[in-house]
């Protein structure tokens, strides 16, 4: 369809512009903002390509969580990139070569939306999902029934891994923050900080109790 091609081409151009901006800009906060913008536009492309679940993930992870994580990183460092001293011509050559190789690798792949591709023609998987999932699972969306029912254990394992990683990151960040609060005693305290310190102390107490109990 005409409008679909137009939207995809224009959005891909936006992605290129955003990427060049991220590379060129020295202000890291602006780069983080552009990265969030990049994710939103990429999610729009995925929507146009009918991959709604991928678009959802891209928006939640790319625009939501990574923006927050990168900002948390920036709060521990400077937000202006240092000018580069050395010449990066070899890195550019390597990156270009890798990109060309990847592009070459996509030559063998079937065209976008090709109904005759091997993945669509597999008799026991794709054909069966397309024809039977409506009666077997009852979801109108085949992707949802594959994700949540046919490979439900795989999805459960994935979720557990992501949850464990999230808990680990939170534990690391939380420990860092409590250490960081200590040396700021000489500053005049605002009400908010006192409250947050009380909360942090309470958490530590609870943590100690937990250790003592176990």
């Amino acid at each position: 369809m005409m409008i679909e091609t137009l939207v995809i081409v224009v959005l891909l151009t936006f992605l290129i512009v955003c990427t060049i901006g991220i590379i060129v800009l020295r202000d890291l906060l602006a780069a983080v903002i552009l990265l969030g913008m990049y994710s939103l536009i990429a999610a729009g492309i995925f929507i146009v390509m009918d991959a709604v679940d991928v678009a959802f993930t891209e928006a939640a992870v790319g625009a939501g969580i990574s923006t927050i994580l990168l900002l948390a990183c920036l709060s521990h460092t400077s937000h202006v990139q240092k000018p580069q001293q050395h010449n990066n011509i070899w890195a550019l050559i390597m990156v270009s070569l890798t990109g060309l190789l990847l592009l070459y690798g996509t030559m063998d792949m079937p065209g976008y939306g090709d109904a005759n591709s091997p993945a669509q023609q597999h008799p026991e998987l794709a054909q069966r999902f397309i024809h039977e999932s409506g009666s077997e699972v009852g979801m109108p969306n085949v992707v949802t029934s594959v994700l949540a029912s046919y490979r439900g254990y795989d999805t459960l394992g994935e979720t557990v891994v992501v949850f464990a990683a999230g808990v680990a990151v939170l534990a690391l960040l939380g420990l860092k923050r409590r250490e960081g609060l200590e040396p700021e005693d000489d500053e005049p305290e605002s009400g908010n900080r006192r409250v947050s310190r009380q909360v942090a102390d309470g958490e530590q107490d609870r943590g100690n109790d937990g250790v003592a109990n176990s």
């Binding site: 906060l29 625009a63 948390a72 605002s190 900080r193």
Partner: peptide
């Protein structure tokens, strides 16, 4: 849902900009 995520991202950026920090609410 996108509108909600966009809101969260903007709040995070603004909070970082205001406090230089995401963890504490101190000014």
């Amino acid at each position: 849902v996108y509108a909600l995520i966009n809101f969260i991202g903007t709040i995070a950026i603004l909070k970082f900009f205001e406090y230089h920090d995401l963890g504490s609410g101190a000014y």
